[in-house]
């Protein structure tokens, strides 16, 4: 390989500089490729933020909506609906949310659960048409 003689001619400082640059690039590429685990749960009721909760503490939370109380559980860094007064129980069927940018909602009971990450930025923008 043509790189081998080049590498041999470099001083220790040059090699450190090149290695540092490669690590720097790998770090930024990895930031772009992975969606961060969530840190906080944001609860919105009627489009108003009513709770901001850490995802690292397991608990069951009762949220009052116009139809009645909905129960959510935070467990192992993920949140899910476990009980809801809504007619079709779609919110319970949505399963768990744990990654930054994940959403759960109970539209009839006007509840929106949003997961945020440490930086507040989420570089995975894929959308699902359903």
């Amino acid at each position: 390989m043509a790189l081998k003689p080049l590498w041999r001619r470099m001083t220790v400082g040059d090699r450190l500089l090149v290695s540092g640059l490669i690590l720097f690039c790998v770090f930024f590429l990895s930031l772009r490729s992975f969606r961060a685990a969530g840190v906080h749960l944001i609860v919105e009721q009627n489009n108003q933020v009513t709770y901001k909760l850490a995802l690292d503490t397991d608990r069951v939370i009762n949220l009052d909506g116009p139809l009645g109380p909905s129960n959510i559980v935070i467990e192992d860094g993920a949140v899910r609906f476990i009980a809801s007064p809504c007619p079709n129980q779609v919110c319970i069927g949505m399963g768990c949310a744990s990654k930054s940018g994940d959403l759960l909602a109970c539209v009839p009971n006007r509840l929106l659960l949003r997961i945020t990450g440490r930086s507040g930025r989420d570089l995975d923008y894929d959308l699902i048409t359903r």
Partner: peptide, 17 residues
């Protein structure tokens, strides 16, 4: 910058990025 917001509208979750 990226701004991501959600609201309950139109009987569903509307998200704007």
């Amino acid at each position: 910058h990226q701004l991501r917001r959600q609201q309950l509208l139109l009987g569903t979750v509307v998200e704007i990025v």
